[in-house]
Simulated assay, not measured.
Amino acid sequence: MAEFAFQHTVRSPVRFAGIGVHTGEQARVTLLPAPADTGVVFIRTDVRDRDNRIAVSGEAVCRTQLGTVITNAAGVTVSTIEHLMAALVMTGVDNALVEIDGPEMPIMDGSSIDFIRGLDRAGLQPQGAPRRFIEIVDVVEVIEGDKRATLRPSDGFEVAFEIAFASAAIGRQAVDLKMGAGAFRRELADCRTFGFLHEVEALRAMGLARGGSMDNAVVIDGDEIMNPEGLRRPDEFVRHKALDAIGDLYVLGAPVIGRFEGVLAGHALNNAVVRALLATPHAWRVRTLAAEMAEAV
């Protein structure tokens, strides 16, 4: 655990480019090293007439329809950040500047795997400040009808998720994983987002899904999967939901020591439980392993 006790940033710049799944706009992204205790800060390089920096936090999340959108006081936004955020937290990046020249993160292949590969190429730079963890010490839960998102105490980080769809292509699926850097790569990182063909026209009328295609999503028509290559895993759908939840939790600004449970949940409920946790100070504490290691010597 010693390597996880201190903060890290990227060792060198990391560049990505691609289309936004909802806006349909091309965007170029550069991840840059940042000093200790910076956190993750997005910078809209195409915005020059007002504050273009958006520090990631639970309160910065302003919309959660089919993706997580963050904003600053000047109304500048960046959308669909969750797949990058999952890659950052699960590769151990605490601090980074994310320069982007458009309103939405590139969707890449619909998963986190391209972000993981880019971060691997860049490598990590250790920093002297201790890494802060958010340890869950009491249960926090948000329930909306048959949907639920829960954070519970646990010795490590665990993610459990359940989904149910009428389509026979999905049906009812569940996953329950102890999560670390290796487990994320093996179990979740390559699992793609998904959508239903019959919803595309309505979503596009709402300004969503304009960049979606079988290149960046699993597309379902009735009970059939339209992608010629099929699925990467039989339960790719629920695994992607778990990936999303990991990214959505990292808006807390620190890795979680605790168990997340999502039942029929999505980005809205994920952020709701984040906000509920922040509003319940007795349910969590900040923990630093560096301090514990020093005391043990």
Rank of each mutant, 00 (worst) to 15 (best):
A5Q: 02
F6A: 08
Q7K: 02
V14G: 00
A17M: 12
V21K: 09
V21I: 15
G24I: 10
E25G: 11
A27M: 03
P33Y: 00
A34Q: 06
G39D: 04
F42E: 06
R50L: 11
A55K: 15
E59W: 00
A60Y: 02
V61A: 12
R63G: 09
G67Y: 07
T68E: 02
V69G: 01
A73K: 10
S79C: 13
T80C: 06
E82H: 02
E82L: 02
A87P: 05
V89F: 08
M90I: 07
D94Y: 06
A96M: 14
V98Q: 06
D101I: 12
P106G: 04
D109E: 08
I113R: 11
G118K: 03
R121H: 14
Q127M: 08
P130H: 01
R132D: 12
I134T: 13
V137L: 02
I143V: 15
I143P: 03
I143H: 10
K147R: 15
K147L: 07
A149G: 04
R152M: 14
R152K: 12
R152D: 08
D155F: 07
D155P: 05
D155K: 06
E158Q: 14
V159P: 07
E162C: 12
F165R: 10
A168Y: 08
A169S: 09
G171L: 11
R172W: 06
D176A: 06
K178W: 01
A183G: 07
R185V: 14
R185E: 14
A189S: 13
D190C: 11
C191Y: 09
L197D: 07
H198W: 09
H198R: 15
A202C: 10
R204F: 03
G212R: 05
M214H: 01
V219F: 04
D221W: 05
D223G: 10
P228V: 05
P228I: 07
E229D: 05
R239S: 01
H240C: 14
H240V: 15
K241N: 02
A245R: 11
G247E: 10
L252T: 13
A254T: 05
A254V: 12
I257K: 04
L264W: 04
L269C: 08
L269T: 08
N270A: 06
R275M: 08
A276R: 10
L278F: 02
R285G: 07
R285L: 11
A290N: 09
E292M: 15
